[in-house]
Design a protein around this nucleic acid. Structure first.
Lengths: 219, 219
DNA sequence: CGGCAGTTTGAATATTATCAAGGGATGTGG
DNA sequence: CCACATCCCTTGATAATATTCAAACTGCCG
């Protein structure tokens, strides 16, 4: 634990709606989300925005900023967020000196990529109603695994624009699809909470299969 | 170099059209593509397929198989391929004993994720013509960086079904869009080769910006 | 000369986007 | 306490985009 501390260079607080990493800003830092909801995104020059994935507590951000030669992504907070920051310049020495930690970083990175893979399948090949169903079930399960579900209901701070941007749909169509699902008795969103009323049917629409969850390494 | 060898457990040859990793098969191996073209993909139960990204020489595959709790992907060869296989069970000992290598693995993983991010932006937010343009420019540039371009022309072993599956479009629409681009004088595909006739205009349509490429670590 | 895999085309249909406008809650300043 | 501004959700109408279906065409290989 003490060496984790040595790499940590502090906590970064970001207000709801604020930006942790600006798009095209090449980083130098690695973050772990400690509390709150955030998301990674990319935009085209005319403003079309794609949310790459939502970040929940325990998720890692910023590795690509350090490594990638592909274009970069931004990170924005949905709610007030606390991020643990690590010095990415020290990443190499972390690999040399603390293999366990490095392994954890790689683990989290691979997990993150798996998430984006799923989202790409969704955006590329699912219909609007399937996409929305996937999103609802997926977020619910992630929160549930974090112990943040209260029965069938979870905190749900994102709005329909976020959902549209995550799924590659227009705002209007997202609204109509969401409405359709709730009229089918699938779910209910109100007061910033999501409640799944028929999780099995939703999962069937979403064709959402969970693999065996593994415990997340501490970081 | 000698310790790279110690982790290598041989070369795996896959014939064109053959499968390196079956979907839902949880791995235990890590691969580096040595020669040929391949792709990672996911399918839905009714057969809709999404290609997550194309693999070119130097790319890493299989890390998620080892780590991820998300659903898994398959890997299929487009042309005859040679993969270098590493024992993933030895991954942890690699991190402990050969930080340099482990760092390289993580580097490649992050690079791979960046690629999927781009593809998600494309599938989610670009129009058909933009998607096709992105694909052509992107593949051309990747090959060029590998020294595999001959002037404006590169080997192009994929067919329109591959392109459709990579972009989240139907085969028919992909065909019409491709045709439209070539009638605009953008490119030419014939005899298994792609030639970019107007790279600048294509890149403008694609809104494709390269970041500064960095040298790829050897593995 | 088939036969096959991949490409091309047209027509009809479905899905999704865009445009325009209204509604409801919440908050703020006068 | 009211007026009004803002943000988000909702709805209907219309248009654009992409899919599906069906069929023909091409080049290549045995």
């Amino acid at each position: 634990m003490s060496f984790i501390e040595s790499y940590r260079c502090g906590v970064e607080m970001v207000k709801a709606g604020g930006t942790l990493i600006r798009e095209h800003q090449s980083g130098g830092r690695l973050y772990t989300l400690y509390s709150g909801w955030a998301f990674r995104y990319k935009t085209l020059s005319d403003g079309r925005r794609q949310i790459l994935n939502f970040l929940l507590p325990g998720d890692l951000v910023g590795l690509q900023q350090e490594f990638s030669d592909a274009a970069l992504h931004g990170v924005e907070a949905v709610t007030d967020c606390a991020f643990c920051a690590f010095d990415a310049d020290g990443l190499w020495s972390m690999f040399r000196e603390h293999a366990r930690l490095a392994y954890g970083v790689t683990w989290l990175a691979a997990r993150g990529e798996g998430m984006v893979d799923d989202n790409l399948l969704t955006a590329g090949r699912r219909s609007a109603i399937e996409r929305v169903a996937v999103l609802l079930v997926h977020l619910y399960r992630r929160l549930d695994r974090l112990g943040l579900a209260e029965g069938a209901s979870v905190d749900f701070p994102i709005n329909q624009q976020h959902i549209a941007d995550a799924l590659g749909l227009s705002l209007v169509h997202t609204n109509k699809t969401l409405r359709r699902l709730s009229e089918m008795g699938m779910h209910e969103i109100s007061g910033g909470r999501l409640r799944l009323l028929n999780p099995r049917a939703l999962a069937r629409i979403a064709e959402y299969y969970d693999a065996i969850p593994r415990p997340v390494p501490l970081l």
